[in-house]
Computed example of a mutant assay.
Amino acid sequence: MSESLENKHHWLEIFLKSIFSFVGVAILALGATLCKVGNIGLDPFTAVNIGISHKLNMSLGLYQLIANAFIMIFVILLDRKKIGIGTVINMVGAGFMIDWFSGLYSSIFHFEPSMLTSVVNGILGLLLFTLGTSLYMSTNLGVAPYDALAPIASTRLHIKYRFCRVAQDIGFMVAALFFGGPIGLATIIISFFAGPLITFWDKSLSDRLISGLVEFSKQPSGKSIGHGVTGAGRFTYGIVKKSYNQTLEIQEKLSQYTDLQLQLKQEQARQDFEDARKLVINSRKMYGMLKREEERRAKDDNSDGD
């Protein structure tokens, strides 16, 4: 394959992943909107932004963009490798999309919220929020500025990631309470127990879609699209336990690995590949031995028959 063709496929992959990331952020924003109108709370960062934006009589989209831009200055100075196209899509799009979806919801549904509608909105909101998070992070095109804070602090302060993340989420929860932001059950679930749902979406949908997208970018064709759609439809339900630990792992994945973690993951992948290669070699040897034994017995049977 020529270098120009490789570059073409690379940029096609980036373009498709960017669209994929945009769709993920849109679904995430829709989920956040349903949690908001259901009065069950939001993630700590969005909650504190809503509280402050209301006090300043400013739209959530505009204030969250300003807050993200301020945080991103520090991220660029401390670890610019975490910044990518996905970062821009998230920091610019999420807040404005929540504003837009909130207006659309109000224009369509005019009834007073009840316990039933809160429960329905909350469940759908959490499902869509975790789905959007899974789709957005699976593109690996950069992280949201908020999600870059904990790993940077962990590296700079030599403190475990989980402690930095917990302190960060709790700090923003307290700030949201102080500024009157929407803190509720969803805030706790998103901060500490969303891991199984995100893992479920990763394994059943997002990873498959990204794999199909990468393959399509290498060989664009209608047949590739058909295979991708078929593969995406073959998932079954299964929620993974160990909620809190998995949530921290997912949050760390959102923040991308540090250089040391990346080296360890590469070494682990190399070892897994080596083990798999040895297994294939041994399996072939075993198959050859069994095949030769089968042929020997067949010859013995023929000679006895003669």
Rank of each mutant, 00 (worst) to 15 (best):
S4H: 14
L5A: 12
W11C: 10
E13M: 10
S18R: 00
I19T: 07
F22S: 09
L28T: 01
A32F: 01
C35A: 10
G38S: 05
G41K: 06
L42R: 01
F45K: 00
V48W: 00
N49L: 06
N49S: 07
G51K: 01
G51Q: 01
L60K: 03
L60R: 02
L60G: 03
I66N: 03
M72N: 03
I76K: 06
L77V: 12
K82M: 09
G86L: 01
G86S: 01
V92R: 03
G93L: 04
D99W: 11
W100E: 02
Y105F: 14
I108M: 10
F109I: 15
F109Q: 13
F111N: 15
P113Y: 08
S114W: 11
S118A: 14
V120W: 03
G122M: 04
I123S: 09
L131N: 03
T133P: 06
S134W: 07
L135E: 02
Y136A: 00
M137T: 04
N140M: 12
L141Q: 05
G142M: 04
Y146N: 03
Y146E: 00
A148P: 01
L149R: 04
A153Y: 06
T155H: 02
H158C: 11
I159C: 10
I183N: 02
L185D: 05
I188K: 03
I190E: 03
A194L: 08
L197A: 10
L197H: 08
F200D: 01
W201A: 00
D202Q: 14
L205Y: 04
S206R: 02
D207R: 12
R208M: 05
I210P: 00
V214H: 12
V214F: 09
F216T: 04
Q219W: 11
Q219Y: 13
G222C: 10
V229A: 05
V229H: 03
K241I: 12
S243L: 12
N245T: 14
Q246T: 13
T247I: 04
L248K: 09
I250C: 08
S255I: 05
L260H: 10
Q261W: 06
Q263C: 12
K265T: 10
Q268A: 07
Q271A: 15
L279Q: 15
N282Q: 14
K285F: 13
Y287Q: 08
Y287E: 10
M289N: 13
L290C: 11
E295V: 11
R296C: 04
R297L: 15
A298T: 06
A298P: 00
K299C: 12
N302Y: 15
S303P: 05
